[in-house]
Design a protein around this nucleic acid. Structure first.
Length: 105
DNA sequence: GCCAGGGCGCTAA
DNA sequence: ATTAGCGCCCTGG
């Protein structure tokens, strides 16, 4: 069957995330018209290559935590901190403050 | 903080 | 065709 058109939508939505802001997988899914299928978003991120223009590091899970392991996790964290996003002692982001809010501004 | 279970779409074997 | 696994999310103990 024809390939899914899911990834392009996800990438498009992800690119809209402003610098210094983060979004959750579920949020991206919803904005991409894939409400409830957050898993696809995570999978799409993994499918990206190094030349991508998609800010995958701005996408984190619903707990405000980076879903990756140690290595990639701290790399992502470093990228976000470089943009002004703050992590607490547990390596979590305060979503109430840094979560991207589209259309509500 | 941890683990278990169900649900959704896609990929690899 | 089927199975299993995933950068998930939610609920519950």
């Amino acid at each position: 069957m024809a390939p899914a058109k899911t990834y392009p939508r996800i990438y498009r939505t992800t690119r809209r995330i402003p610098r210094g802001r983060v979004a959750t997988y579920g949020q991206i899914a919803e904005l991409s018209g894939l409400a409830g299928h957050a898993r696809q978003v995570g999978y799409a991120m993994h499918a990206l290559d190094s030349e991508t223009n998609v800010p995958w590091h701005r996408v984190i899970n619903a707990q405000g935590r980076v879903s990756l392991g140690d290595l990639a996790g701290r790399a992502q964290r470093a990228l976000l901190e470089n943009e002004g996003v703050v992590f607490d002692g547990s390596g979590k982001v305060d979503l109430a403050r840094f979560r991207w809010r589209p259309r509500s501004r």
